[in-house]
Design a protein around this nucleic acid. Sequence first.
DNA 1: GACAGGTCACGAAGGTCA
DNA 2: TGACCTTCGTGACCTGTC
Lengths: 221, 221
Amino acid sequence: MNSASEHVSKWFTNNIEQKQIETVKRGKKVIDRICIICGDKAIGFNYGILSCASCKAFFHRNGNEDLKAFKCLFNGDQCVIDYRISRKCYRCRLKRCLNMGMKKELLLSQEEIQRRKHVGIKRIPANFNIKSTPSMLEEDKLLVNTKQEDILLKSLALEETTLIEQIRSTFLSIFDNDQCTEFTDRVVSPDDASELICCLQFNNHVALRLIKFCRSIEYFE
Amino acid sequence: MNSASEHVSKWFTNNIEQKQIETVKRGKKVIDRICIICGDKAIGFNYGILSCASCKAFFHRNGNEDLKAFKCLFNGDQCVIDYRISRKCYRCRLKRCLNMGMKKELLLSQEEIQRRKHVGIKRIPANFNIKSTPSMLEEDKLLVNTKQEDILLKSLALEETTLIEQIRSTFLSIFDNDQCTEFTDRVVSPDDASELICCLQFNNHVALRLIKFCRSIEYFE
DNA sequence: GACAGGTCACGAAGGTCA
DNA sequence: TGACCTTCGTGACCTGTC
């Protein structure tokens, strides 16, 4: 780092840090707190450090990105990240977030987000088994499935029932009766190699439809 | 220009820019916004400075060109760039864009453009049709689907391919071959009412599996 | 209350076409 | 060339969990 930019950078850092210490010590008023990343008004501690809404949002979006994958746009990795000057260099901004102590570990994982979302919604027990035994008659199997389906549906929250209904109706509109007939009309022997290939192609075909199906559901990203 | 003065210069430029932003934000009247390059009505900040649509487009097209490669056509490098007079001298216009502070760095690189494009998942055009005509042979239908699948897969980004592979393998693990055989082994006539009910129950059964399937995909909420 | 994620209007990039 | 369009990142504000 050259002496001029180093000087400016240190000046800002020191000035900001000084302000931060003073205000936090003085009292709990959030109004006076300063973001240690860009000097803007801090909203509280985000991902471990006192920071503003913008830096919080930025880290929320990009905290898990790989720093190596990006280049500095301006000053060779020495951009001053200050809300009064610029926060435009993606790389330098992320680097500063990390250098100032923002913690990736405090970003919630997908599982954690899912877990939080469904707190209060009764989950289906993991050991709930929808399989029927091979010794049962075809009709009995279907009966068991229907009964289990009933039990399953009754244990669901309204949101889940609505979601399932949405999935079901979308499913029916894409995997329509023609589609069903198209394959159930054909006699397939599992011993026949060509039929097995056909069955795999059937799988591929259904997978393709599934892609269409999944894309059509609004809850699907 | 040495790095220290360059740094100070940039600081001032940015400071002026900040002031401009503040002025614009304070009085929201669009009428008052003037392109600092040609005096036309500004549309906002483009490449760092308050400018009009024309100057934005001009810099977008030519910002990366080398100024030295062009000569002033009229007044020996002293053309007045004003929308009421003329914006026709390429060299003087580009020079003025740069002098007034338009930043080449804010033109996205090819990598950046590609990256941005692939951040969001590229959607399949709504008119993309995976249906085959009823008059076609079964083999031909599969062939068409396979070909379309090929075209489809080749147009996808890496993330999409990965996602689809994830969906496909999850699909195969849930709708396994036994499942496939279970239904394809049976001869179903669409004219038979009991078979039709059976077909609907089949649909229900698959829908149930689909719920399981959908829950197992991480991108599914 | 503090701090996670989520939402959405807006600004500023690139793209298109007369 | 420039008006208009689409896309995506930003940041203010909101919601939900602990």
